[in-house]
Structure formats: structure tokens, C-alpha cells
Design a protein around this nucleic acid. Structure first.
Lengths: 338, 338
DNA sequence: CTGAAAGCGCTTACAG
DNA sequence: CTGAAAGCGCTTACAG
């Protein structure tokens, strides 16, 4: 592969001059510039980003650690992150933690070794030494979706509380009184917050949230399946299962189906995170939708602010309830929500 | 951040010695080794992968260009690719082409600039100059899923023909005679092959495939929606719509629902690529399942073979039909397929 | 077993 | 406007 030396030789100038035209440095004569450009073209020269990074100490690359690539929510987040990053001149390397702290740490280590300019992370746990070191060590960093309390890093997320309250009101209106939740790992903010929001909303209506109605999941489908089986085996099973993410809702659906039960007649179902498939499941699933694209874009902007030395800003957007049929039919006044 | 010099100073040895212990070079005295390790630990030193790459001319990184991150098939593929790569000591950088050739080329260019060791690609088109140059230019490369005829690059894919034949036989058995397909872009192999397989299978049963029953899609949901609307507006609409991927099936479902029609009573639906949600859609969707995990792993192994100078091997696995209820109820003899 | 030195491909003060 | 030279952080023949 042609190097800058080859270009310099071909153009009859020094490598410094080649470098200058490549970086649009103003002080290059039109003639030299033309010769360099011609040489670049003739040789099909492309600058070596590795060498450039070593020299400039910047890679124009962002790392994104997501909790699970198989989760459509994170996949949508990754897509918007990549788009915004590209618009700002950065590439992004995605690390899939698969909800496993060790794997998350592996990716953080690898990304740091590659000297990415900044890190966007949705932490899988409450804060591994790895992640805390990175934050304290001055690596530009922003939390998206999930965050770690007590760490001084900007957070970009959606506040689901009002939407959870709307959901609970909706369930109550439909006559449901025994409401259960499949929670995410307590070590994640979204794992615990969603339970708290749910509990508070129930409390406001004078409804209890017994321990037996809190299933412990890990945001993946299997755990939703197991938690739901446990609910269904209870002497007094819940009227409704609220899954704290879409994959656990999928697992819940599997478990309900395996039992030969129907949604919503036998048991109602709702989920946090809306996805296109929820329109077409049997029945369509009532869900809380996050402004995923906006979150991704805001997170990138915040991170680039940190990287480029501007004061970064935490951002909290809001989620909204999308009512479909999985919790039962409102008496009247239904409107379709595609 | 501590560099190798700092470690050398701390340990009281030369940087050469530090480098040797870092790379487990045999000829280092136990004493020197211990001192270096202690210094590494004390300083929290991590080798700079950028510098190492520049020197060794290898990045231990693979590029993966997928056609669409929002497509669960590619997401599953990406996951298995990353897993296998990690097992072999490589990282992977994913580029999402979003089914857009320019975006695909952008990512190829970026990845090449970063001097990735090899490229795994599922081409969005019939072969941009970008991709052909990379292949001819000696970049280790392997095609996964889709490929480009006439380019000397190993291909790892699934042959869907037998499964398509099974599907058509299944449809015929259920009494369907007017079968339509939503194809992917003709410039992609999977776009054209699936139509050919479908046409051939119909031919064997003496059924035609009129042009009006070939919808032109782009593997994304919207195109499936539009193609289906067109089918439904036909004077003689088809009995069955076969979508050449899962996202176009989602779009088809949207269009059918918008028209107030039911699947399979009013129109049957089948899809290429099986996904977990198809079990829970209304109705569960009959689909052709690829061995996605195996494809991803085989592709990585083939690519690493090329990179490390071993003779690479093209691999063709097979897909299989998973019958559910979206094409109608077999008279008897049904078995559930979760 | 060990170190001094060259060199990977760039960028960028410095001098002219 | 231009070039020679230093240096980013490593690895690795070479000499001892």
C-alpha cells in the first residue's frame, strides 16, 4: 500500500507538503497542491489512520458499549449513535456486553487500548472497577440509558416514571388489581428505577406490590420466561405482568403460551420499550416507548462536547405509553396505536 | 497515560525488555520479568494498541459490513461473528450499510484506512468499485450471506433452495395457487436467488410466477409494505405473499392489517429468515430459518484462515422450513414449532 | 539474557 | 511556501 513517501516522491515534494495538502493546511502553493493531488490519485493513496492516530493522539473514534445487541432497543440506539457520530466526523466501535459485566469490561479494556476518543456506555452493572477507573482516569465518557450513581459523568436517558404511572392508571382503569413486574438486574439503574416507579404508581392507587409479584430478570428473554412461569405457578397469580424490557416480554409471551393461556383474557401483559413487532404480536402489546433516536443523538453530542472540551450536558427525555390490546379492551374510546 | 518508557524506567530495564515480557518472548530473565510485571502493575500500564499496530502492521481487528443493523438476522450474525472473533483473539468493528451502497463504501473505506486485518462483507449491491478494489487489492476478505459473483473471495452462506421448495410444496398442499414474492434488490444475490428458487419451485408444480406477483423490495420494512399494498390492489390478488426477509414480512403484515384483512384466511404470509418474534405474531409466521450462528462462526474462521495464510474454504450450509400458522392450517398432522 | 537503535507512517514546530 | 527533522509508542533484528 502506498505511503506518504511514495506520494511525495511521485509529486516531487516533501512528505511535509503532502501532509499539508492532505490536511488542508492553508500555506501550500496551488502548484504543489495540484501535483500532490494528482499523485494521490495516481497511486490510489489513502492515509494510514493508525499512523495518524499515533501522531495526533486522537482516533476520531467513539466506543459504544451496549448491554445486548439482540435487544432491538439497543440496536436502534446503536444505529442513531453511529449516524450522529458519522455526521460529526467520528466512527463508532460497538461492544456488545451481552448483559455480562466481564464481557463489558473486556470491551472497555479493548477500546481503551485502542485509544478511542470517548466512551458511550450503558452499564451492565453498578460499576465495575474497570468502568470507574476509566471515568476517573479522564477518559471522556457519557452514560446512555443506564447510568451509575455517584460517578461524575453526564447521563443521557429517558425518564420513564410518568409513563409508568400512565400505564398503571390504564391497568387500574381496566380493572386489574394484582400487578406483577419482571425487573431487570437491581445493579442497573433501569433495573431498579422501573420497579420503583411501578411500586410508587401502585402505591398512589392504594395497591400493594408483594415480593412474590416482583420477578427477578436480567433483561434477556429466558429470564422473562422463568419469572412468568413462577408467577403463573403462584396460588394467586397476577392479573398483569409488566416486563421491564421487550426481550423479557418475549419470554413472558413464550411462558404464557406454553401454559395454554391467552392474553389478555387470562393474563395481561405490558412492556417497557416499544418495538415494531409489538404491533403484530398476538395480541398487540401495550408498551412504553422511549425516544431512542433522540437519546442516541443527544448522547453522541454530549460525548463530543466532552471530547472537544466544551461543557457537556446531561439530558433527560421522556417516555410515553402506547396503549394496544394486551391489557384488555377499554370499554369504549379505543384508538389504534400503530 | 503511562507508556512503555515509564514502565522501563520504573523497572530499571530497557524498553526492549519490557516489550519482550509483554509479548512473552522466551529470553527474559525471571528477575527482569518480575520487575517489569511489578512496574506494569504499579503504573496500571496498558500497551498502546495504535502504536503496536503501526509497528507490526496488524490490528487484530476484523471489519464486518452488514446490510442493516435493524434486521434481527444481521444482528444475530454480528453477534456470532464477534464471539468467534473474540475467541480467536480478534476484535470486530461493525459497519452498518443500511442497504445503501454509498454507506457501505464509506464504511469499507474507513475500515481500510484503519488497516483492519480482514473484511467480512454481506454486499449491499452487485459490486461497487470500492469493494472490488479491496478484493483485488489483496485485503483478506470473505463474503457472508450475500456475495458477488465473479470475484475470487470465499463465500459463507446458506443455500435456501431446498427450503424454498419445501415451502412452496407446503403452500401448494394447503391449496394455494396464486403465490407472490417480495424480492430483495436484484443486485444482491439473496435478492435474486430467492426469487429464482421460488420460481423454479413453482415451475415444478406447474404454477406460474407472473410479473405482477413479483414485488420489488429492498429488504427493509417499508418496501414490504408498499409491495403488499400493490398486491392487494391487484384485480386478482395473490393467495400468499412470501417476503424474502423478515423486515419486509413486517411491512407486509402492516399493509395487510391496514387493509383490515386477516392472515391466513384472507391472505397467507411466509418469510425468509426466522426470528423469535415470529412465534408470537398474529398469526405465528411460517419462515425459512438459516443457521445464523454457524454462518457467522464459519465466516470468521474462513477469514482468519485467509489472514493467517491458510487456504480458506467456502462454506454452504442449509436452511430449513419452519411451519407455523400464517399460511393456513394443515388439515391434520400439525405439530407445533416454537 | 539485554540494550541501543532503527523504523512503522504520519504531523508539526522550526528555520529558511 | 517549503523541507529537514523530531517524535508519537511500540517491536525486533543486531551486537554483545
Amino acid at each position: 500500500m502506498a505511503s506518504i513517501k511514495d506520494v511525495a516522491a511521485e509529486a516531487g515534494v516533501s512528505v511535509a507538503t503532502v501532509s499539508r495538502v492532505l490536511n488542508s493546511h492553508p500555506s501550500v502553493s496551488p502548484d504543489a497542491k495540484a501535483r500532490v493531488l494528482a499523485a494521490v490519485d495516481a497511486l490510489g493513496y489513502r492515509p494510514n489512520a493508525v499512523a495518524r492516530s499515533l501522531r495526533t493522539d486522537q482516533t476520531r473514534t467513539l466506543g459504544l458499549i451496549i448491554s445486548d445487541v439482540l435487544n432491538p432497543y439497543f440496536t436502534a440506539l446503536a444505529r442513531s449513535v453511529e449516524e450522529e457520530a458519522r455526521a460529526l466526523g467520528y466512527s463508532v466501535i460497538i461492544g456488545n456486553a451481552d448483559e455480562r459485566p466481564e464481557l463489558q469490561d473486556h470491551h472497555i479494556r479493548t477500546l481503551l487500548d485502542r485509544r478511542i476518543d470517548g466512551l458511550l456506555v450503558s452499564p451492565t452493572d453498578g460499576g465495575s472497577p474497570q468502568i470507574l477507573d476509566a471515568a476517573r482516569g479522564g477518559t471522556p465518557m457519557v452514560f446512555v440509558d443506564r447510568w451509575i450513581p455517584g460517578v461524575d459523568v453526564p447521563v443521557v436517558r429517558a425518564d420513564g416514571c410518568p409513563a409508568v404511572r400512565d400505564l398503571v392508571a390504564h391497568l387500574h382503569r381496566l380493572g386489574h388489581r394484582r400487578l406483577a413486574i419482571i425487573a431487570g438486574p437491581a445493579a442497573t439503574t433501569t433495573g431498579s428505577e422501573r420497579v420503583e416507579a411501578f411500586r410508587d404508581a401502585l402505591g398512589e392507587l392504594g395497591l400493594p406490590l408483594p415480593d412474590a409479584y416482583i420477578g427477578q430478570g436480567d433483561f434477556q428473554a429466558d429470564s422473562g420466561r422463568r419469572a412468568t412461569e413462577r408467577f403463573l405457578a403462584l396460588p394467586e397469580p397476577p392479573d398483569v405482568v409488566f416486563a421491564a424490557d421487550n426481550l423479557m416480554a418475549l419470554g413472558a409471551l413464550d411462558a404464557i403460551r406454553a401454559r395454554g393461556l391467552r392474553v389478555p383474557q387470562d393474563i395481561a401483559l405490558a412492556a417497557f420499550d416499544d418495538i415494531p413487532w409489538f404491533v403484530h404480536t398476538d395480541p398487540p402489546v401495550t408498551a412504553i416507548a422511549q425516544p431512542t433516536g433522540d437519546l442516541g443523538r443527544a448522547a453522541v453530542r454530549a460525548l463530543v462536547d466532552v471530547i472537544e472540551g466544551r461543557p457537556p450536558q446531561s439530558v433527560t427525555l421522556s417516555a410515553r405509553l402506547v396503549v394496544r390490546r394486551s391489557c384488555g379492551e377499554p370499554a369504549s374510546n379505543r384508538r389504534s396505536n400503530l
